[in-house]
Design a protein around this nucleic acid. Structure first.
Length: 510
RNA sequence: CGGGGUGUAGCUCAGCUUGGUAGAGCGCGUGCUUUGGGAGCACGAAGUCGCAGGUUCGAAUCCUGUCACCCCGACCA
């Protein structure tokens, strides 16, 4: 047996050590790096461009569903947070608090907060903005004619996490939070479900990431919400990633903040509110859904750039003519429309070795690489490599055929990624109807690598919180969602033997 | 907040047990040879050995204190 392991751009590979592979992909793709501040990260241009594409696309979807953007303060008066009991309990443990407004020189020469500049009321750095937005909504909403109020904000939030992972859980992260107020319960529920759908469609269409839509159990619900809905995606280690949440808040926050309005009959009622959000965590989901042992793979619809042109000029008698050929090609590609933007092209003429350069782009996940030298120029062709195929499967194409076909090629790649992810999800999802099989399925075969096993399980569950907690304790497995749109019939809970309305989805989770 | 571990060049780390002029690989710079998939050779720049005390003729190494970070738990979008 002399099957030497093929050289991969990322070490370790996914099979060898998934969490470490994830970190290495982020580094190799130049998406982000750790910061001097514990738990925070610096998002680098390639990673930020990816986030900007996510942002722009979602923003269009929010606007198309009637929402307007606004911006609320980073600081929340401590007393605001105290207004909703469950909400306090949920977030109090992880709040950064601002207590002073001035620094002075300390006894040892350094700077210290000035004891004379202590704030009368401490300010909390927002972990989420329900309370402060609620306070403003209370002023804005007077009459039923002011409703519905449909607001979104793009912002950073801070949650002081103990254990952090780049993009998946950082102390500070970027997100959007939608906040809406409605005159009726039905309207607010409809809004909650609508945004849940918007997230699911975005994930599927733009990220090429299939998701399961459903409602959270009580244990996983947002603090203060009546119902929480989420989209759950399967990562390549078969763990679930909660990729977006939408909450029906009932009248909990409107009562806490006194968002009330005069109805048509002259009565006064509390509004019904919702909130919904996705964060830079989506970038982590994107990485773990598509990337391979050679680095990042980007779905074309969100890729910061679609095509890199690498001029091969070292042997050319006339390097400038190669460059001109490349520039002209880039110009011809850039006018091609691609899902609300145009095909975006980078020309990489840095003075470094060709092989090195090519591998850098593979690791960064750019969909299409073109190497163009005198030979291609002479044949009026391009030499092309695709990130959805093996890195050795390269082909020569006539230039015009490539330019005319580039959009179709990108669409095809987008579809390929979605198909792969769906196959992954299907292959690792199963229905289990007894407790023993459930335990067997989720018990690691290899204790050295407990990450790589299991998957999603659909099983009947009668809904007792203690049962869920017991299973979480024993197996590290939780109910991800009670699926919506399920055609499942009532059955028997595999843990308690009691009646169950439908099967729910169980998995280990990020 | 419990249990374990690590701080030495930009990065990964050796050296420490047994004190004696600061090391390697990668990366970086220059030159030559190479070049259509991660190049080779040569030369070079780069460190207050986390910080503060102590022991000693002499400390990266021994002692005390301190700070920071990492991993495993509890918590989490």
């Amino acid at each position: 047996m002399s099957n030497t392991k093929p050289k991969t751009a990322i070490t370790p590979t996914r099979d060898e050590n998934y969490p470490e592979w994830y970190q290495q992909v982020i580094r190799a793709a130049d998406l982000a790096e750790p910061s001097p501040v514990r738990g925070c990260m610096v998002i680098k241009p390639w990673g930020y461009a990816l986030w900007e594409n996510i942002q722009r696309n979602l923003d269009e979807r929010f606007k198309a569903t009637g929402h307007k953007n606004a911006y609320f303060p980073l600081f929340i008066p401590l007393s605001f947070l105290e207004k909703e009991a469950e909400h306090v309990e949920g977030f109090a443990k992880e709040c950064a608090v601002v207590t002073h407004h001035r620094l002075i020189e300390g006894p040892d020469g350094g700077l210290i907060p000035d004891p004379d500049a202590k704030l009368e009321e401490p300010l909390v750095v927002r972990p989420t903005s329900e309370t402060i937005i609620g306070a403003m909504f209370a002023k804005w909403v007077q009459s039923h004619r002011d409703l519905p109020l449909l607001i979104n904000q793009w912002a950073n939030v801070v949650r002081w996490e103990m254990r952090t992972r780049m993009f998946l859980r950082t102390a500070e992260f970027l997100w959007q939070e939608g906040h809406t107020a409605h005159a009726t319960r039905e309207e607010a529920v409809a809004e909650t479900l609508l945004m849940h759908d918007v997230y699911a469609q975005f994930a599927r269409e733009e990220m090429a990431m299939p998701v399961i839509k459903g409602e959270k159990t009580e244990a996983e619900r947002f603090p203060g919400a009546v119902n929480t809905y989420s989209i759950e995606a399967m990562m390549q280690d078969r763990k679930a990633l909660q990729a977006g949440t939408s909450h029906f808040l009932g009248q909990n926050f409107s009562k806490a903040a006194d968002i009330s309005f005069s109805d048509e009959d002259g009565g006064v009622q509390h509004a019904w509110t919702t909130s919904w959000g996705v964060s830079t965590r989506l970038v982590g989901g994107l990485i773990m859904t598509h990337s391979d042992d050679d680095g990042l793979i980007l779905p074309p619809r969100l890729a910061p750039a679609h095509v890199v042109i690498i001029p091969v000029t070292h042997k050319a008698e006339n390097p400038e003519s190669v460059m001109n050929y490349c520039r002209k090609l880039a110009d011809d590609l850039c006018v091609r429309p691609f899902h609300g933007r145009s095909v975006e092209v980078e020309i990489d003429d840095r003075d470094i070795r060709g092989g090195d350069k090519i591998w850098q782009w593979i690791k960064r996940g750019i969909p299409i690489r073109l190497e163009i030298g005198p030979r291609d120029m002479a044949e009026d062709s391009v030499f092309l490599g695709r990130r959805d195929k093996g890195h050795k499967e390269k082909q020569s194409m006539k230039r015009q055929a490539f330019v005319d076909g580039v959009v179709d090629m990108l669409d095809e790649m987008q579809q390929t990624l979605l198909d792969r992810a769906e196959n992954m999800l299907k292959a690792n999802t199963r229905v289990i109807d007894n407790k023993e099989d459930f335990y067997t399925y989720f018990t690691p075969e290899n204790k050295q690598q407990p990450e790589i096993h299991g998957g999603f399980v659909w099983a009947h569950y009668s809904g007792e919180r203690e049962v869920e907690e017991q299973i979480k304790k024993e197996l590290g497995v939780t109910v991800r969602v009670i699926p919506l749109d399920s055609e499942d019939k009532p059955g028997t809970c595999i843990f308690t033997g009691k009646p169950s309305k439908q099967r729910v989805v169980w998995a280990k989770a990020y």
